[in-house]
Amino acid sequence: MPEPILQMHALDAHYGDFQALYGVDMEVSEGEVLAIIGSNGAGKTTLMRSITGLLSNEPSQITYHREDISSLRADEVAMRGLAMVPEGRQLFPSLSVRENLMIGAQVGRKGPWSLDAVYKLFPILDERKDQQSTSLSGGQQQMVAIGRALMANPDLILFDEISLGLAPIIIKDIYDALPGIIGEGMSAIIVEQDISKALSVSSRVYCLQEGRVSLEGASDTVSREDISRAYFGIE
């Protein structure tokens, strides 16, 4: 088994007095695509926020390339090659498409991704590059968000709810583009409500339920029954 690049060990997360994650153990290997599923409020987004440094954690709960990144700020995590496509896109409304993509390159990491490479992946963005990012359709905005994360040339990319609020045909386009992204040797974590989509693109899957890991397994061997039990918590 290849070396894990990201490891979480007994990860807890809190919002004030409310505890959102309880002792989550998880790891991502190099070049692996991991899916995280779970119902609303299961802690999927909290997990993403913990990994990317938007929530602060206790020391030695998260290691990345053997380095403890638990207490780093978000920008320090990003500098180390961990990029996120956030839920709801979170584009910068006063910037154009091209400028949004350029912001992703601020970390200054070398790699295969450049403006040209992103335009090759999503040709529509080349046509729209000087438009305001918020004048685009939802699907095109999602492409900008993906392109912006890729511009950082990350080793690990996190997709938080990429299909949320998009038309099925657009979701298909975006999923069709995924192999071209991950084929570059990148690892990925995909958070998804659509379970069959998540299983079809990933090699391993974790299910979260009320802040705990309720299922872990290879995506092609987990059964429907296991998933519904882990997802809804019904015995």
Binding site: G53, L54, R73, D75, A78, M79, L91, F92, S94, I103
Partner: peptide, 22 residues
């Protein structure tokens, strides 16, 4: 470039931080 980062921070501080802007 720095101005771009500043505009990004003004638009969305959380997203700017997670894209590596200090």
């Amino acid at each position: 470039r720095k101005g771009l980062a500043l505009t990004a921070i003004r638009d969305n501080e959380l997203a700017a931080g997670s894209l590596g802007i200090d």
